[in-house]
Amino acid sequence: RLRTTILPEQLEILYRWYMQDSNPTRKMLDCISEEVGLKKRVVQVWFQNTRARERK
């Protein structure tokens, strides 16, 4: 499996959503993934990793 590259524009959108809610619902993940143009699972893992980084 290839690692997904997240573009700066996509990152900006993801962080904007993250500021609103760091733990989005499944429905929100659907909306975010549509807006960003990434698979739902990629967005979900990005949120998990970002929460983990914040805890450090």
Rank of each mutant, 00 (worst) to 15 (best):
R1I: 12
R1K: 15
R1N: 15
R1H: 11
R1A: 08
L2E: 14
L2F: 08
L2P: 09
L2C: 01
R3M: 08
R3V: 11
T4A: 08
T4F: 04
T5I: 07
I6T: 07
I6R: 06
I6E: 05
I6Q: 04
I6P: 09
L7H: 12
L7R: 14
L7A: 14
P8S: 11
P8D: 13
P8A: 12
P8W: 06
P8G: 08
P8Y: 04
P8K: 07
P8M: 05
P8F: 07
E9M: 01
E9K: 07
E9A: 05
E9L: 04
Q10P: 02
Q10E: 07
Q10I: 01
Q10T: 01
Q10W: 04
Q10C: 05
L11M: 11
L11D: 08
L11A: 14
L11I: 09
L11N: 15
L11C: 03
L11E: 12
E12R: 07
E12G: 01
E12H: 07
L14N: 02
L14D: 01
L14I: 00
L14S: 00
L14H: 03
Y15E: 13
Y15L: 13
Y15N: 14
Y15S: 12
R16Y: 04
R16V: 07
R16A: 07
R16L: 07
R16D: 10
R16C: 05
R16E: 08
R16F: 07
R16N: 13
W17M: 08
W17Q: 09
W17A: 10
W17E: 10
W17C: 09
W17Y: 15
W17G: 04
W17S: 08
W17V: 04
Y18S: 07
Y18M: 05
Y18G: 04
Y18T: 03
Y18V: 00
Y18L: 01
Y18K: 04
Y18Q: 01
Y18E: 03
M19K: 13
M19R: 12
M19P: 02
M19Y: 14
M19N: 13
M19T: 12
M19S: 12
M19G: 13
M19H: 14
M19Q: 12
Q20D: 09
Q20E: 09
Q20I: 12
D21M: 01
D21G: 02
D21T: 03
D21Q: 00
D21Y: 04
D21K: 09
D21A: 05
D21V: 06
D21W: 04
S22Q: 10
S22W: 04
S22F: 02
S22A: 13
N23Y: 10
N23P: 00
N23A: 11
N23F: 14
P24I: 00
P24T: 03
P24W: 05
P24S: 00
P24L: 04
P24V: 06
P24Q: 01
T25W: 00
T25V: 02
T25I: 05
T25Q: 07
T25Y: 04
T25L: 00
T25E: 10
R26F: 09
R26K: 15
R26W: 12
R26I: 11
R26S: 15
R26Y: 11
K27V: 11
K27H: 10
K27F: 06
M28L: 08
M28D: 09
M28R: 10
M28E: 12
M28S: 12
M28W: 02
M28V: 12
M28H: 10
M28G: 06
M28T: 13
L29F: 09
L29G: 03
L29I: 15
L29M: 15
L29W: 01
L29A: 01
L29P: 00
D30E: 13
D30K: 12
D30W: 07
D30H: 14
D30C: 06
D30I: 12
D30N: 12
C31L: 12
C31V: 15
C31I: 15
C31M: 14
C31Y: 10
C31A: 15
C31D: 14
C31E: 15
C31G: 12
C31F: 05
C31R: 15
I32H: 00
I32G: 01
I32N: 02
I32W: 02
I32K: 01
S33M: 03
S33K: 00
S33H: 08
S33G: 05
S33V: 08
S33A: 13
S33T: 09
S33Y: 00
S33C: 09
S33L: 01
E34A: 10
E34L: 06
E34T: 09
E34V: 02
E34G: 06
E34H: 07
E34S: 13
E34F: 01
E35I: 00
E35T: 04
E35V: 05
E35L: 02
E35H: 00
E35R: 01
E35G: 01
V36H: 01
V36L: 10
V36T: 12
V36K: 08
G37A: 02
G37L: 05
G37D: 03
G37P: 01
L38P: 05
L38S: 04
L38M: 08
L38D: 05
L38W: 07
L38N: 02
K39C: 11
K39H: 15
K39L: 02
K40G: 07
K40I: 07
K40F: 02
K40W: 08
K40C: 09
K40M: 08
R41F: 08
R41Q: 15
R41C: 10
R41V: 10
R41K: 11
R41A: 15
V42G: 02
V42D: 15
V42R: 07
V42L: 06
V42E: 15
V42F: 06
V43K: 00
V43M: 01
V43A: 00
V43Q: 03
V43D: 01
V43E: 01
V43W: 03
V43H: 00
V43R: 03
Q44Y: 07
Q44C: 09
Q44P: 02
Q44H: 07
V45T: 09
V45D: 14
V45G: 11
V45H: 10
V45N: 08
V45W: 11
V45K: 08
V45M: 10
W46A: 05
W46R: 03
W46Y: 05
W46V: 05
W46Q: 01
W46M: 00
W46L: 01
F47T: 04
F47Q: 01
F47V: 03
F47M: 03
F47P: 03
F47L: 02
F47R: 02
Q48C: 10
Q48P: 01
Q48G: 06
Q48M: 06
N49T: 11
N49G: 06
N49C: 05
N49K: 10
N49S: 08
N49W: 02
T50N: 07
T50C: 08
T50L: 03
T50Y: 03
T50F: 07
T50K: 14
T50Q: 15
T50I: 03
T50S: 07
R51W: 01
R51S: 05
R51P: 02
R51I: 06
R51E: 03
R51A: 11
R51N: 10
A52L: 12
A52P: 04
A52R: 13
A52W: 06
R53D: 12
R53Q: 14
R53C: 14
R53P: 05
R53T: 12
R53K: 13
E54N: 10
E54D: 12
E54V: 02
E54C: 00
E54K: 05
R55E: 10
R55V: 11
R55D: 12
R55Y: 10
R55I: 11
R55Q: 15
K56M: 05
K56I: 03
K56G: 11
K56E: 08
K56C: 09
K56F: 00
K56V: 01
